[in-house]
């Protein structure tokens, strides 16, 4: 597995911490998912922040703060600096939202913010589209990880454009690539891993499932299966049948 800014992840699942029915379910979902990274955010302090932080620390996972909801470079950069102080990490999941309905990243501002934050010493995990040129620009801006979307955040549609994601994998062979957002089912996560992606970041698919803990476990198994399948060098699909049982030696019975 590739390193993420010099860190080897215990496994390829990054799990969000939002939208769970209760803190206890969140905690159990994390334990059963085996996720090595938890995404977190910053919001106005209303009293609950410190308890939440203590629980995340007790999970013993790496923390990846986000800039969710930011629409401008300045807002995202300021949020990143605040996150650095609160969470004591140089990692930042850089989200710059460009469209209200699709939550599609504003890739122009994303590249600019990534450049500023890299110069400020951050290790940027950019939430981006599957556009190759944007990927190149992000790498040129100093990113060493790319996180293309599978589908819009929370949509559960899976990998909307597998062709583009395949191209991205082929183009950025040595770059750690994470499918971030859009995963709805374990099969989507398995597919991402089969395509050779290095990790999957998901939240809603687990947190909003009828049984989040069971879904967390399903995701863990699917990701493991997809990763093994990729390493096992799968066969190519073909149009015509090819008998798997030997033809030679068949008894002549007609």
């Amino acid at each position: 597995m590739k390193e993420f800014y010099g860190t080897r992840l215990p496994n390829p699942l990054m799990l969000g911490t939002a939208q769970y029915p209760s803190p206890a379910i969140l905690e159990q979902a994390f334990r059963d998912s085996g996720a090595g990274v938890a995404t977190v955010s910053l919001r106005r302090e209303s009293g609950a922040g410190q308890t939440f932080w203590q629980m995340i620390r007790d999970l013993g996972v790496l923390v990846l703060p986000n800039t969710a909801g930011c629409h401008t470079v300045k807002e995202a950069v300021t949020t990143a600096h605040m996150a650095h102080e609160v969470f004591d990490t140089t990692w930042i999941k850089l989200e710059l939202i460009g469209h209200t309905d699709s939550l599609q990243p504003d890739v122009f501002q994303l590249v600019e913010a990534a450049r500023i934050l890299t110069e400020d010493g951050f290790h940027v995990f950019p939430y981006t589209t599957d556009d190759l040129i944007v990927g190149e620009r992000l790498l040129a801006a100093g990113c060493e990880v790319l996180m293309p979307w599978g589908a819009p955040i929370g949509s559960g549609r899976g990998l909307n454009n597998e062709y583009a994601l395949r191209s991205m994998r082929a183009e950025f062979l040595d770059v750690p690539l994470v499918i971030d957002a859009g995963i709805g089912l374990p099969s989507h996560a398995a597919r991402a891993m089969e395509l050779g992606f290095d990790a999957v970041l998901l939240n809603t698919a687990v947190a909003r499932a009828g049984d989040p803990v069971m879904m967390a476990k399903a995701m863990k198994l699917a990701i493991e299966a997809g990763q093994l399948a990729h390493q096992a060098d799968p066969i190519e699909a073909r149009d015509m049948a090819e008998p798997s049982t030997p033809v030679i030696g068949k008894a002549f019975l007609s």
Binding site: G16, T17, A18, Q19, Y20, L26, T39, V40, S41, L42, R43, R44, E45, S46, A48, G49, Q50, F52, W53, I56, P65, N66, A68, M82, V86, F87, I153, G154, N203, T204
Partner: peptide
Amino acid sequence: VEVVAPMQGG
């Protein structure tokens, strides 16, 4: 003045 703290996030 904005005062922010850790919160759940995706």
